[in-house]
Simulated scan of single mutants.
Amino acid sequence: MAKRVVPESERRRRRPTRQGAVLSEQLIVETALRLLRYHGGAGLTVRRLGAALGADPSTLYRYFRGMDELTLAIADELIGRAIRGWRASGEWRADLRGIGLRLHSAYLAHPQAAVLAASRITGRTHEATAIEAILGVLRTAGLENADAVRVYRSLVDLSLAFAALDGAALALPRAVRDADRQMWRTRYGRLTPGTHPHIAATAGPLVACMDGSAYPATLDMLLDSTASRLTRGR
């Protein structure tokens, strides 16, 4: 059952927690990110969060109605970290590429959080700021409103989808990640032209391409498509 969230003016805890900190939404979110790093999404519970903060778990309901609302706050915090310090340069392609790479990097800095929160719509301040910034770049570049929205959706979904995909890989145990990467070399890199001619013909670049994320290259493809759309429009 959802709990009643205490108004902002009444939230501030008068006494420090056992760790000597005063509770706030920001502190709770930062602590949740730390717990996600060590315990994953399944390990993020109200009880564990309360213990990490040195506060009674029920105190957390003064700030969030439940874990789902905390998840939205985590997602918005990552978006805020992505756009913090970003400024439009007036060069639409560089600006969009910069925002995309920032989003991807901010989520990948917390891979377990990326898996948990990349698909969520927060409705919060940082998300609204990011939407406004991206649409502003696209409309200033000359795209019509409908086209600007389509490119915005593609850019954000691409960035967050890759963040979730790459985050899931990073969240795996190192031995498992290494085994997955080696599979390209030990399995696909050794297939013969007689059975798999196309894989054999491209084995070198195929193995090399699978080392690292495909996100930057895919992002450039989206920007190439946007550039073509702008050229046709003019």
Rank of each mutant, 00 (worst) to 15 (best):
A201I: 02
V6G: 06
A21R: 15
A148Y: 03
A201F: 02
V137R: 08
A214T: 06
A82I: 00
Y152C: 02
Y61I: 04
V5Q: 08
D68P: 04
S159W: 11
P216A: 12
R65G: 03
D147A: 15
D157G: 05
G90D: 07
G85P: 11
Q19H: 13
T17C: 12
L172I: 07
Q182V: 01
R234I: 03
P57T: 04
W86A: 14
R234F: 05
T129P: 01
A203F: 04
G100A: 07
R15L: 15
A42W: 06
L191R: 12
I131C: 04
Y188F: 07
E91G: 11
A55H: 07
A21S: 13
G194C: 06
P193K: 13
A55Q: 09
R232P: 00
I199C: 00
G142E: 08
V151T: 12
Y63C: 03
I99Q: 13
V207L: 09
L143I: 07
F162W: 11
V6N: 08
L143C: 11
S225M: 13
K3M: 08
I131Q: 14
I134Y: 06
G142D: 10
E127N: 11
D166T: 00
V151Y: 05
L33R: 01
R87K: 14
G41V: 10
G123N: 03
L230Q: 00
A52F: 04
V22S: 04
R87P: 03
G167M: 10
R234D: 06
P193M: 04
Q112D: 12
L36V: 01
G43E: 01
G50A: 00
E91Q: 15
D220G: 09
R174D: 11
L155M: 11
T186R: 15
Y152S: 01
G194F: 10
R177K: 11
A52Q: 07
E127H: 14
S228G: 14
Y188S: 03
E132M: 07
E91M: 10
G54R: 09
R11G: 06
V149I: 13
L143V: 06
A217I: 10
I74D: 01
I121R: 15
G54P: 02
A73T: 11
S228T: 12
P193Q: 11
T218W: 05
